[in-house]
Nucleic acid binder design. Structure first.
Lengths: 196, 196
DNA sequence: GGGTTCATGTAATCGGTTACATGATTCG
DNA sequence: CGAATCATGTAACCGATTACATGAACCC
């Protein structure tokens, strides 16, 4: 399984492994727990399937960055609870030292608008309407979280850790708001339906 | 080469092939030209390496969605100029009918802020400063394009195709502005450097 | 002479998705 | 009785990145 290459690449570019280490730094968890957290909080800026999670946990274990103990829980199926090893913590700290790369943007909707321009056929409006609804729904969700978890506007009083997590939520809010603004701009200058 | 599966999947999820068809709908081009356009205009919302482009062009040719003629140009190396076939145009139109999927977000910077929160070590500020500079540079670039290519504020007078392309640029501007706003918010509430 | 541009690709590897597989428990 | 939740994985495939490879022309 080419452990050497894996260990070396605990540094370089890609980062599902670092995301998992990050989740384990917060608290020990099973593969199932981690997958669920990808569907919830962290899922707003990183996604991974359970298959990816289990595979990565196996590699991290082999590399000595995490360890697990099997916990039997009476009725429920047994689970493996993973936690950071000291080397895992070191690897995570080393990753923090390196500059974060810019997120890759791949947006089908914008490509489609280009395609409609090139073909002089097709109607982008339904897609924009759909996207507007999706972003509006997310914005509501984030604003609810903001209201329920953080007393708005009193950042200064929070511990560092909470301030950092709050900022990730703020990013979600600003991003969704920017999408809504764009959708409205687009809808206001696209006719209801061109010939096609 | 499992052409059947490929042909069927001209419909389903992923879309490098549709992006390339989109570029060819605008005008015929070589693999090299297409790669360059990924580095320029279209690159703001879709990226692909030259290796990906050449491989996809080979598959699209085999599937009959594009065709090429080899053009020798005296001094320079010969090139293959690709163009849409009627089936290619059909495939692109069919793709336009299907709803666009939401872009996947994977942002290392936000993961890092979560990691700093969990470890109580490390400093996110340098990364935020770096990101702010990158987004500011892009915003300048986009605003220059806006000034040079579109008379600001007179969307109504443009042909449909230009209005659509202008909207993709507007999206870039709104997105970069939102990032700048967030970076400023983050910097204003993070201390210069926590202990770590 | 050395770097950039034009122009094309192959090979190896890694990241991510889809489909398949199992098995118990709890809720409606 | 059927669906959802808890909990773990394997296998096949597709998408994307990195490294390697070639070769001519043009510019400094």
């Amino acid at each position: 399984m080419q452990l050497d290459a894996y260990q070396i690449s605990v540094c370089p570019p890609m980062s599902l492994r670092h995301v998992i280490l990050t989740l384990l730094a917060e608290q020990p968890a099973s593969g199932y727990d981690i997958t669920k957290r990808f569907d919830a909080s962290l899922g707003y800026f990183w996604q991974a399937s359970h298959q990816q999670v289990y595979r990565e946990l196996a590699r991290l274990t082999e590399a000595g960055l995490v360890s697990f103990e099997t916990v039997t829980q009476g009725e429920r199926p047994a689970k493996k609870v993973y936690r950071l090893t000291p080397q895992g913590r070191e690897a995570l700290l080393a990753w923090l030292e390196r500059p974060a790369s810019l997120p890759v943007i791949k947006d089908e909707l914008l490509v489609k608008m280009w395609a409609v321009a090139g073909l002089a056929a097709g109607d982008p409006v339904p897609d924009v309407v759909r996207r507007r609804a999706e972003h509006a729904a997310r914005l509501v969700e984030y604003r609810d979280l903001e209201r329920d978890c953080f007393a708005a506007g009193c950042l200064a009083g929070l511990p560092e850790a909470d301030r950092l997590r709050y900022l990730t939520l703020r990013r979600g809010i600003l991003a969704e708001q920017a999408w809504l603004d764009w959708c409205d701009e687009a809808l206001s200058c696209l006719p209801a339906a061109p010939p096609g």
